[in-house]
Design a protein around this nucleic acid. Structure first.
Length: 270
DNA sequence: CCGGACGCCTGAGGGC
DNA sequence: TGCCCTCAGGCGTCCG
């Protein structure tokens, strides 16, 4: 599941392949990927060039000549660059045919991903982007602190709430709790100012480290497409043995999500 | 208004 | 070997 660092890697990789290319036509093989009117989406975007690709949280933001559309990869969304005569994969759902004979193909096994047109000038002020909180790397204490400190929900769940921090998914939420030495069930209102300051710092550091690791794959993509799922070093997520104390990792469910933690290294409930 | 439950999907994996 | 059932998981929506 691509989280902020993977989406950032996809963004950088994609820019190398599609910048300044012009969309000739769009094939929509599975319409539900597109939020809003499909015909409008297609007719608006054709004949426009891709000027830039931006990102906010886990959203990719495609800036065209006169319009902007956003793309969320959800669980398994990925992009491929192929020549137009190459056969489609069964999970290629949206095909952007470029005027230079290449295709930008959106592939998504589970069909959870979404694309939609947004207002070119003010897209950050409208849904869904205006519902997002702050990216950990740019988060301010004044914004984050009350949202954590006034909640009785477990910190793991709060880390996944995109209206507080945006960009953190299940994997990095587990990793952040681990590096904090914090039990993921710890209630938000039990964290002190100092610990929340530390939480912002740790979250930012972990995402930056992951982006740096993804940087090594920036100029290439393999047969699986541009999905940003480079090899990140995980300390606790999906592990069986703790990377620190070598004790057993425990798996529990918090808010319906698989949560891995080390009962020895993450005892602190505050 | 807050938060829990559900729906959207498919393939992997377990049970038999 | 193969079929069927269950389930993960981000996020929008529904509902209590």
């Amino acid at each position: 599941m691509p989280e902020l660092p993977e989406v950032e890697t996809v963004r950088r990789t994609l820019k190398n392949f599609v910048l300044h290319k012009t969309i000739d036509s769009i094939e929509v093989r599975y319409p539900r990927i597109i939020d809003g009117d499909v015909e409008t989406f297609v007719s608006t975007l054709i004949h426009q060039s891709i000027c830039d690709i931006d990102r906010y949280g886990k959203y990719l933001i495609f800036i065209l000549d006169h319009d902007v559309f956003i793309s969320h990869l959800r669980m398994e969304g990925k992009y491929n660059i192929k020549m137009k005569d190459e056969p489609y994969d069964k999970h290629d759902h949206i095909i952007f045919h470029m005027t230079d004979g290449t295709d930008l193909r959106y592939n998504d096994t589970r069909k959870f991903g979404r694309m939609q047109l947004v207002d070119k000038e003010h897209y950050r002020e409208y849904p869904p982007l205006n519902r997002l909180g702050q990216e950990p790397m740019e988060a301010s204490f004044d914004y984050i602190y009350p949202r954590i400190h006034q909640s009785h929900l477990p910190i793991k769940q709060l880390l996944l709430d995109q209206s507080i921090f945006t960009g953190i998914g299940n994997i990095y939420a587990n990793e952040i709790c681990f590096r904090m030495g914090m039990d993921p069930r710890t209630r938000g209102d039990r964290l002190s100012k100092k610990r929340i300051l530390e939480l912002i710092e740790v979250s930012s550091t972990i995402l930056k480290e992951a982006i740096a690791q993804g940087g090594t794959t920036i100029h290439s993509f393999d047969a699986n497409g541009i999905h940003g799922l480079f090899q990140v070093t995980l300390s606790v997520h999906a592990q069986t043995t703790c990377s620190k104390c070598k004790g057993p990792i425990k798996k529990i469910t918090i808010a319906g999500r698989g949560t891995y933690y080390c009962p020895h290294c993450q005892k602190r409930r505050y």
